[in-house]
């Protein structure tokens, strides 16, 4: 056996650090894209923003008057909102403290820079520059990790946490955004709306290379669910959780569960009904929770 072994508590912290960092990036991109969309579509912007609260957190935590400023403050800066960017950054920071010995020095420094630049920025909701910065910082952090880290257990838990989080957020996005009643957005804007969804998962350009025609549910949905080459599709996320689990001990059961979920994901068709998609997403989220429970049971301090 390797002379260096990973503590259970360390595994848990790495996993959460990666999840929270990924969440910060996803949430930032989500808000950012909707920010842009608001400028384009003449409609009830408040309800669109409220909808962001539904994806990232829960509506009953939001008690203020639903103005644009209040909602954005809640999403970005509210420390009591466990889905806010500030909260997630704080949590990733707390977990990262323990990881200093395990991360490459440059990754650790990048982590600090991300926090410093967010905390030292003004609290403002007029433009999205801070969101751009957070996205760039998080990407840099993960870039250093993939570029500089030995493929060891630390790396495996970063990957595991990161892709479980990404799959989770993606499934919420599909659930909320795709199946949302489009009462107040006319068909005329469908193209724009699908574009915003793709942009919020950084996939617009990748999609366009494959599909030149207009964006419609029938071609976008299969892309974000089961295109195995796109790093923010559900199926890609599942593949990325399989590879670290294969390296870790006692992962047989988790791998079996994920493999089943993969089959269900592959079975989704472009012509599946809203109801079928909805049922699938529910199932997907349930299994993801099971995977998380198995990971905690197998590796964390119980």
């Amino acid at each position: 056996m390797d002379n260096t072994v990973m503590l259970s508590s360390t595994a848990e912290r790495i996993y959460w650090m990666a999840r929270y960092t990924e969440r910060v990036e996803n949430t930032s991109r989500l808000i950012n894209v909707n920010f842009d969309l608001l400028l384009d579509i003449p409609h009830d912007e408040i309800s669109d923003l409220v909808h962001l609260i539904e994806i990232t957190s829960s509506l009953d935590k939001f008690s203020k008057k639903p103005t644009k400023e209040n909602i954005l403050k809640f999403l970005i800066y509210d420390q009591k909102n466990s889905g806010s960017i500030k909260y997630c950054l704080e949590m990733s920071k707390i977990n990262s403290r323990y990881l200093r010995p395990l991360l490459p020095k440059t990754a650790w420094e990048q982590f600090n820079n991300m926090h410093i630049s967010f905390l030292s920025s003004y609290e403002q909701t007029n433009n999205s520059s801070i969101l751009h910065e957070v996205i760039r910082d998080s990407q840099r952090f993960f870039a250093i990790v993939s570029d500089a880290m030995a493929r060891n257990d630390v790396y495996n838990f970063i990957k595991l946490g990161r892709f479980i989080e990404r799959a989770d957020m993606l499934s919420r996005l599909i659930e909320e955004q795709i199946l949302r009643k489009e009462a107040y957005v006319s068909k005329h804007y469908e193209n724009l709306q699908w574009m915003s969804i793709l942009k919020s998962i950084n996939g617009y350009e990748s999609f366009k290379i494959l599909n030149k025609e207009e964006l419609r549910r029938i071609n976008v949905l299969p892309f974000i669910i089961k295109d195995k080459n796109f790093p923010r599709s559900l199926i890609y996320c599942l593949d990325q959780t399989i590879s670290p689990l294969k390296e870790l001990p006692s992962s047989k059961e988790s791998l079996k569960v994920i493999s089943k979920l993969k089959d269900a994901t592959k079975n989704i068709k472009a012509i599946s009904t809203d109801k079928q998609i909805k049922d699938f997403v529910d199932f997907f989220q349930k299994v993801l929770i099971d995977v998380h429970i198995l990971v905690s049971k197998n590796y964390f301090i119980n």
């Binding site: 990973m6 503590l7 259970s8 257990d153 001990p249």
Partner: peptide
Amino acid sequence: FMKTIYGKK
């Protein structure tokens, strides 16, 4: 012993 992902050490 310490608790690790590979069991006790």
